[in-house]
Design a protein around this nucleic acid. Structure first.
Length: 826
RNA sequence: GCCGAUGUGGCGGAAUUGGCAGACGCACAUGACUCAAAAUCAUGCGGGAAACCAUGUGGGUUCGAGUCCCACCAUCGGUACCA
């Protein structure tokens, strides 16, 4: 009676589908649990073995939650707008709608073959007009609140995709998607003001349960820094040069200023600049460089002094030169800095190269609490004696242990206090103000592409930009045949003259439609909300559904989406919260991440390396259950793991042994004495480990149990039933089949999750390791609640121990109840 | 450089969070079954003859350290003239 996985898996999958076994209930009185995985982009390659790692993990949790009595929402959909479909269309002249549909069908069939307990009745697709109607609607709300605006600005332009990219999509100066170089290009783009939410995106992380590394990465990306903006007078004018610094305490050490090449100062004072030609030449050179070239490999500092212009240090009144250099970025802060070479590495490098003065204004505090050897103290004293900044070998940048010197009224203050005092001084004297800056940039939201949501905006010569009236949504993407980007990187839609022509909703005059489309991140920024009420045609979801299902209880996905999708959707959600459309501040209560699956050779799977594993092949050869169990067993869920064909065979073998246990089944309504504590321990372990995503140890627990039962050549009914219930979320098909074969009427998925009794997880008789001076010498068997006196006697009777302590003095005996016994001898 | 991980047998990895290091699986070896092979089952499997030695390296704390502390090294991921 060998196990026929093909037959069994098809049988149960059909039943689940016909009966909608896993559909969420609309009963809002039940306790709910909303588990979410990142919906896939339906690529032509089909499902990758990486997808099921995440899907199986949450499927296991979802199945367990159902058995624990929750009303579970575990939905699926397709994020189907995007470049690959469009590029394929350009090449093969097949409409992306067609390929997308084919791919979705393929994906759906693949996902079903893996037995995921998705609620298929709620399947969504971002390219469905009934879906993107609401994506467009959200955009219009953003526009109405001033959070969407059109701006002409240098954008990242991918030379391959011929499309503008968000900062997040540029990796090492090349396009994240196609690898082509990215250049700067001036283009009028729709922008979303994510920067307005920067602080809240940081602060609210405190209230949610994201992995620490995800929080850290988001905070890094947002890049908050505290400091001050300070005005430096430009000599001989009424004008000021406004700079941003995080170290205003070093202001007495500012020996020169630097402005970015694009800084307006140069244009404004071109008449005063003595070496304008030289300066302009430098500007031009900087302009032709891409961001990548500018930051490439810590290149040498370059720059030119702006002769004829001088700045006045507002606290010391010293006159200092102004330089132009591309190490200062126009996009951050004010595009200008005060340079303090003694206490900033970049300024130091620049000053060294151009022989600019270096003035030390911070020294290391040797009276702090830091432990130092006398040698180190001497060195510090010695260095201090030589107050010879030119001899400084490297700038002192430590913010914790510094003390101000040569800084007038700041002298003697610790860096932190000095910062406070100088900012107060700056503000009192109206020289500038406290200022927080973020690295986060606004989100470039326009794509000059076809296969995306049309941006629902109309341009009228008289009224400017006007949104498409909401009752006209969805603004459908027209069917076209020519997907090639237009002239100058215009959207293919720019060629659809009929579609473009429209009337201004405001004044009725002839007007034209926006031809750019939204980025792929748009549809995925709110999709979890649609799952709550996917067929609603009045709202994106009803208030009741939102109240009941929000927030997503557990969201699992890849680390690569931490600074893109995850940040964008938190931003949209917060906006929807602000306009009263969603009930929670945050979309996702908990976020975890899965590790990547590598090829058998330990390298990233890729076609060119020929190490790609196709899930279909695995399912065909071993079945979905083996595939699922293996993916959970292969290693810690959050870490990368190489694929191994040998190991999956081992998992398949394990399942065969589970199947074979039917042959050693004996009667019994309660656990046998022999296995009682093992059963309770196992229930406890699996119940807890699933919650902590330690799936690999769950599987090894199952294997150990099978070993025990097989060795005993028997398993009673009560034990088998519990075992099958625990295993069910991992191997749903086989466990259902055995369940019905042993005569159970209700499906296992509809049974109650087993419970355990804490007192029964402890054995009556335990083995205590006995150490001498911390080294293991023997083990003794004792009753679980044995007292010290008693165990002392038992240990003394042990021959090995007696030999080990023979002739030595026993200093101490340590017994940690139930754990260990240690004798300290001299 | 900065931020975040990780480092344990031939391999993937366990270790109740300070208490028997190597669970479980793979690979391998031997045996049973078989004419034979595969499958299956059984046994063994860090090093060392042993005392002992072993969790990236070197120190430390502790009765006791893979786990805690200090200083390094290596690998991976993120990020980078962000003032």
């Amino acid at each position: 009676m060998a196990y026929n996985f093909k037959e069994v898996e098809e049988k149960w999958q059909k039943k689940w589908e016909d009966e909608g076994t896993f559909n969420a209930k609309d009963d809002y009185t039940l306790p709910k649990w909303f588990g979410l995985i990142e919906f896939p982009y339906p690529s032509g390659q089909g499902l990758h073995v990486g997808h099921p790692r995440s899907y199986t993990a949450l499927d296991i949790i979802a199945r367990k939650k159902r058995m624990q009595g929750y009303n579970v929402l575990y939905p699926i959909g397709f994020d189907a707008f995007g470049l690959p479909a469009e590029n394929y269309a350009i090449k093969n002249h097949i409409h992306p709608k067609i390929t997308t549909e084919q791919n979705v069908n393929h994906f759906r069939q693949q996902l079903k073959s893996l037995g995921f307990s998705f609620d298929w009745s709620r399947e969504i697709n971002t390219t469905d007009p009934n879906y993107y109607k609401w994506t467009q609607w959200i955009f219009i709300q953003l526009y109405k609140k001033g959070l969407a605006y059109k701006a002409t600005m240098p954008i990242n332009f991918c030379t391959g995709c011929k499309v503008g990219l968000a900062n997040e999509e540029v990796v090492n100066g090349v396009c994240e998607r196609c690898g082509s170089p990215v250049v700067q290009k001036e283009k009028s783009q729709w922008m979303l003001k994510i920067t307005e939410y920067a602080q809240r995106l940081i602060d609210d992380l405190d209230d949610i349960d994201f992995l620490d590394k995800i929080k850290a990465q988001q905070k890094n990306w947002i890049g908050r820094s505290e400091g001050a903006e300070v005005n430096f007078k430009i000599k001989g004018t009424e004008d000021n040069l406004l700079i941003y610094t995080t170290r205003p305490d070093t202001i007495f050490g500012a020996t020169y200023m630097v402005v970015a090449p694009e800084h307006p100062l140069i244009e404004k004072y071109k008449d005063k600049i003595e070496n304008l030609e030289e300066v302009n030449k430098y500007k031009q050179k900087a302009a032709t460089k891409s961001d990548f070239e500018r930051s490439e490999l810590n290149k040498e500092k370059t720059g030119v002094e702006i002769k004829g212009l001088k700045a006045i240090n507002p606290v010391s009144n010293e006159e200092i030169p102004i330089w132009i250099s591309d190490y200062v970025l126009i996009t951050y802060g004010t595009g200008a800095i005060m340079a303090v070479p003694a206490h900033d590495e970049r300024d130091f490098e620049f000053a060294k190269k151009f022989n600019l003065p270096i003035k030390q204004v911070i020294k290391e505090d040797i009276n702090d609490n830091k432990e130092r050897t006398s040698q180190e103290k001497l060195e510090i004293e010695f260095n201090a004696l030589f107050d010879n900044p030119d001899g400084i070998e490297k700038p002192y940048t430590d913010i914790e242990n510094g003390i101000s010197i040569n800084s007038g009224f700041l002298d003697g203050l610790k860096t932190k206090d000095a910062i406070k005092k100088i900012i107060d001084y700056i503000e009192e004297n109206k020289l500038g103000e406290r200022k927080v800056n973020y690295k986060l940039r606004d989100w470039v939201f326009s794509r000059q592409r076809y296969w995306g949501e049309p941006i629902p905006m109309i341009y009228c010569e008289d009224c400017g930009w006007v949104p498409v009236p909401e009752e006209e949504l969805p603004l459908k993407l027209p069917d076209i045949e020519d997907y090639e980007p237009g002239e100058n990187g215009e959207s293919p839609l720019a060629k659809q003259t009929e579609w473009i022509k429209t009337k201004c909703p405001h004044c009725g005059k002839e007007a034209r439609r926006e031809t750019d489309t939204m980025p792929q991140w748009a549809g995925s920024s709110w999709y979890y909300l649609r799952y709550m009420d996917p067929h609603n045609d009045k709202e994106f979801a009803s208030k009741e559904a939102l109240e009941y299902w929000s927030p997503v209880d557990w969201y699992n996905g890849g680390m690569e989406h931490t600074t893109l999708h995850l940040l964008y959707s938190r931003f949209w959600h917060k906006f929807l919260y602000d306009i009263g459309k969603v009930p929670t501040k945050e979309p996702y209560q908990k976020r975890t991440s899965h590790g990547m699956i590598l090829g058998g050779n330990g390298e990233k799977m890729s076609k060119s390396k020929g190490n790609v594993i196709n899930p279909d092949d695995i399912v065909k050869e071993f079945g979905a259950d083996s595939f699922r169990v293996y993916e959970m067993f292969m290693g810690p869920f959050d870490q990368t793991a190489p694929w191994s064909m040998e190991s999956i065979r081992g998992c398949s073998k394990f399942l065969d042994r589970v199947w074979s246990m039917q042959e050693i089944l004996v009667d019994g309504d309660t656990y046998s004495k022999e296995f009682e504590s093992m059963m309770h321990k196992a229930i406890k372990k699996v119940t807890n480990d699933v919650e902590e995503m330690k799936f690999n140890t769950c599987v090894s627990t199952f294997m150990t149990m099978v070993n025990e039962f097989t060795k005993a050549k028997k398993i009673n009914r009560a034990e088998y039933k519990t075992f099958l219930q625990l295993l069910n979320p991992f191997a749903p098909h086989m466990t259902e089949e055995i369940w019905s074969r042993i005569g159970e009427k209700t499906e296992i998925a509809k049974t109650l999750w087993p419970s355990y009794d804490e007192t029964k997880t402890i054995d009556d008789e335990i083995e205590i390791p006995v150490q001498v001076n911390g080294k293991l010498k023997a083990t003794v068997k004792v009753a679980k609640d044995v007292e010290q006196e008693e165990i002392d006697k038992i240990v003394d009777e042990n021959e090995v121990i007696a030999k080990a302590i023979e002739g030595k003095t026993v200093v101490k005996r340590i017994y940690v109840k139930g754990k260990i016994y240690n004798i300290v001898i001299k």
